[in-house]
Design a protein around this nucleic acid. Structure first.
Lengths: 301, 301
DNA sequence: CCAAGTTACGAGTCACGTAAGGATT
DNA sequence: AATCCTTACGTGACTCGTAACTTGG
């Protein structure tokens, strides 16, 4: 199993077309055809149905491995390269939408600016997995990812990269002002298992995480929101499309941005759940901007 | 980065010799030299110090990726192959030492023997990671791995394979009969953080797991035991070399095997900790012996 | 009949083995 | 001097592109 055969296979499967994959990879489509044939010949299985191009059962299975393998391959190259390349000059930080709202994060970035004024800092906001992948591949030097967890627990690893806890915040249930629970001083997750939930996996904690933390099968989505804009999400809540969970750190900014007082937030008291921010990074070269930022973010920094 | 370059690199690093790696892989040593040169040239880094052959800093970093990548590559091949190859005929089960002591496991194996008498069952006992790797690579059809966890928590994944909880048992602190805590009706982990501990990572739960569950930095090893024999371990405890943790399921067998009543076991009451057994498997073909065994082991089976 | 994948074939490249050349102990 | 890695070079295999062929909608 050769890597570039895997890469072409993954591309063909993604695009559903030999010719399109050939165009994307800079081959002729004959070459792609030969590569797939060679792979199928090696494994003695048909991986793709042709016309239309669709993964077979075996092909689907292989695809589940192909992504992680290719990612890790890129990560390996990035990791090794980072050890020799220039120490700094610029810094790219990957952020999840909620992570940016944590004071610790904002303060660390400000402190870094003060401490290394000549470094070009650029920040890029994306979904959890995308940030983790970007860091692993070396597209970002450092990432700050938020996620739901029990107190003290670390987040499940999303990509081949190291991670360390950086900050934690209480979690609030966000609901329209008119909701029966609005104004309460606390809410137990068990009481809202069957509410209408908005699945906004790229912004708020994904409902699967909520289920994991609450140990139930509830929290089913009745509304799907794709995108990484927090404000749009809370507008949906205000409009009564459903509920969501947000950390205390993002509430002030969002609550004031909604016309009137149409929103209410109630702390989740049971089980004890926190929104945790973790620093994810590859190799940190001593003295590099990434290392300095990591130092500023570390528990004692 | 081509896979067989990685494989060669990993082999050279493992053996500390170009010629030895060449012998193992069936190349001439000139070829190995060229491959390493090509890899170093591609990454623009020196990966190995020669004479003696030792990974450089960058090489060590690459090595951390090489293992998982090659494993996953094998896993992909095994996974795809398993979908087409013959459904059964024989079954290889990987077991960790403690997992075999669980009644649920023994009963399921017996039931399988009854249900599919013509299948050749072979069992292989090894350390946690080795079992997980064997399953991932297809060397074993199914694995049963034990590990420490909080109630309901699943074990951290050791290899690219699926896992499902199968059984749980109370955890006991095992100590010599003369120990001050002997005969107590329960013990809190916090009270034995600084005891002399035996690190027997291939048999008993590794101390790192204990630290994770207890959330402390204690539980440092004062004695290292390598090997997968439970009896030797408890003999060490009886001889006063240190303490260890074992699930209730393995206690009867071990306690009776020690001359006199030189051993004592006290249940761990706080925090609540369980020894959990998980089934790890790749693809399960319907009707295969592996699938039947998995069914027998499943919570409702 | 057209779009899209496969097969045939030739050319260039690349990787391996043989063999000679250093370097280090 | 012996061991072990590196370099040089020739050959064989492999992979890609061009182009003709086939198949399905």
């Amino acid at each position: 199993v050769d890597t570039h055969l895997l890469r072409t296979f993954a591309t063909v499967a993604k695009l559903g077309s030999f010719s399109a994959a050939a165009a994307e990879l800079g081959y002729t489509q004959a070459a792609v055809s030969q590569q797939i044939a060679s792979l199928e010949n090696d494994l003695k299985v048909t991986l793709l149905n042709r016309r239309p191009v669709t993964p077979t059962e075996a092909g689907a299975r292989l695809l589940e491995h192909a992504g992680p393998i290719l990612l890790r391959l890129d990560a390996a190259r990035a990791d090794v390269t980072r050890m020799t390349s220039a120490p700094s000059a610029s810094l790219t930080v990957g952020l999840t939408p909620l992570a940016g709202g944590f004071p610790a994060v904002a303060l660390a970035l400000a402190a870094l600016r003060r401490q290394m004024p000549r470094v070009d800092i650029s920040v890029w906001v994306g979904a959890r997995a995308d940030v983790a992948i970007a860091v692993a591949r070396g597209d970002a030097d450092i990432g700050l990812v938020d996620g739901l967890s029990a107190p003290g627990d670390s987040l499940p690893l999303l990509a081949p990269a190291s991670a360390a806890g950086v900050a934690e915040a209480e979690v609030f249930l966000v609901l329209p002002a008119g909701h029966p629970l609005a104004g309460r001083t606390g809410v137990r997750l068990a009481n809202v298992v069957d509410a209408r939930w908005i699945e906004a996996a790229d912004v708020a904690p994904p409902l699967s995480d909520v289920r994991r933390v609450a140990r139930t099968d509830g929290f089913r989505a009745s509304f799907l929101y794709r995108g990484t804009d927090t404000l749009s999400l809370i507008n949906l809540v205000a409009a009564g499309q459903g509920l969501t969970l947000l950390p205390a750190t993002t509430l002030p900014a969002t609550m004031n941005s909604v016309a009137g007082s149409e929103l209410s937030a109630v702390p989740v008291t049971e089980p004890r759940v926190l929104c945790r921010v973790e620093l994810v990074h590859g190799v940190l070269r001593a003295g590099s901007a990434a290392a300095v930022l990591a130092g500023l973010l570390s528990p004692r920094g």
